[in-house]
Amino acid sequence: MLADTWHLFGKYMRITLRMPMWTFFTLIQPLIWLVIFGQLFRNMYQASVPAGGHYMDFLVPGIVIMTVLFGSAWSGVSLLRDITSGTVDRMLVSPVSRVAIVLSRVLHSAAQVVVQSVIILLLAVLLGAKISLNPLHLGLMLVIVMLLGIAFASVSNGLAILLQREEPLVAIGNLMTLPLMLFSSALMPVALMPEWIRTVAHFNPIDHAVAAVRSVLIAPMDAGTYAIGFSVVAVFAAVTTGWAISAFNSLRD
């Protein structure tokens, strides 16, 4: 199973590397948010949270998580293409592990968002964000990025199998990503949220992911917050991956 996953993962990576444009293309939106939101909310943030430092620094972890969401939530679209083009059938008639088919896709998505978030981080630093560049901190951040990428790619693949069509999948992807961002501390500090949003955010894995990334990127590092965030995201990734695999296995008609 691991060998199968590795071979298929290698295939997806090879295809991605041949079309690097796509990797950059999905970066455009988070970048626009980084620039526009960074300007738009700066004064408000600094007026409301006098001790909060620069808004740009606060925003970067949120934008990193946003990159993950936008980068991985479309993985299911390419699964549908593979089903239509017969690529999935070709795998299914071979003895290849069925788990590997899903796992390789999900890991490929995760690898893609890891690269994307590194790029976003570099751009943020160029734009003047002051974040920790300690390799340990960056490594811990990338763990969260990877797990969240796995989770959202799994959700997308699972939904693709249930919905069978690209259009509703894209619609749900859009519908899903924005509220998940807004019901978290990605753009707004918890202190400024109304009570009910704060409650909702508590159940939002994105909020915990943002908190975990923020806890390592902005000094001083907050190990407790990171640990909670890591646990939430890891469980989320495990559950969604399991769900996607079982959805795929039920595909045999």
């Binding site: 090879r14 083009s85 017969g86 059938d89 008639v93």
Partner: peptide, 26 residues
């Protein structure tokens, strides 16, 4: 099995397609 939908990857070379297929059959 050769299905109606070809299922080969257009962005891989012929050799890569064949090699991957071989790997899938261990």
């Amino acid at each position: 099995v050769v299905a109606q939908q070809t299922g080969i990857d257009y962005f891989l070379t012929g050799r890569e397609n064949l090699a991957l297929q071989g790997q899938l059959y261990r």
